[in-house]
């Protein structure tokens, strides 16, 4: 290996291939920025800080995700959010937030290398994930704009339906990513 590359996805050891038969497509959207945001959602300074930097208020409805320009904000808990930025934007957004929160009880932590995003798309996307995810993924119950932290197989994930209805976005932890992709690819054999 040369020293030319500077960054690597956690899925560097995974081979992605074209889906066979009716198996869903599984692909990575690497190198997004991920910021863990903590704050009290009833604190005016906190609300104002988020609004100033991201142009929207952090969602307070549980299990929802909103678009904020180039960024997306996922509800993670009553005082916790995940901000997903375009690749390379995380440091700027973090610094802007830290500046906006001066004196406000809050936390902005860069976790960009700790997470990665997977898209599972195709007719059997929900069925593939349902192999071992206890969440009800039926479109009556789980629509674009909703998100959920739950589990997939024996690891955690954040899942949300893609806006175009083609499938799901999964945000998974780096150290579990290789396991989860091998697991998903193995589960997909059932649809080939």
């Amino acid at each position: 290996m040369s020293d030319l590359f500077q960054q690597e996805s956690p899925l560097v050891q995974i081979e992605f291939s074209e889906p066979k038969g009716a198996a869903p497509r599984i692909e990575e959207k690497p190198f997004n920025g991920y910021l863990n945001l903590r704050g009290r959602s009833d604190h005016t300074g906190f609300i104002a800080g988020v609004l100033k930097v991201l142009g929207v208020e952090a969602p307070t409805e549980a299990n929802t995700v909103i678009d904020a320009g180039d960024n997306r904000i996922y509800w993670f808990g009553p005082d916790e959010w995940l901000i997903v930025t375009k690749p390379g934007q995380q440091t700027r957004v973090r610094n802007d937030l830290l500046a906006a929160f001066a004196g406000v009880f809050s936390s902005v932590v860069d976790n960009s290398s700790g997470l990665t995003t997977i898209h599972v798309t195709g007719d059997n996307a929900a069925a593939l994930i349902a192999t071992d995810c206890p969440l009800d993924l039926h479109p009556r119950e789980f629509k674009p704009g909703q998100c959920a932290q739950t589990r997939l197989a024996k690891a955690g994930m954040t899942i949300s339906p893609l806006a175009d209805g083609s499938g799901f976005e999964l945000i998974i932890r780096r150290s579990f990513a290789d396991y989860l992709l091998l697991w998903l690819q193995d589960a997909a054999i059932a649809f080939e």
Partner: peptide, 11 residues
């Protein structure tokens, strides 16, 4: 109380 009904394996 925050997320609604979920499977026991999440808890």
């Amino acid at each position: 109380p925050w997320c609604g009904l979920r499977d026991e394996t999440e808890f």
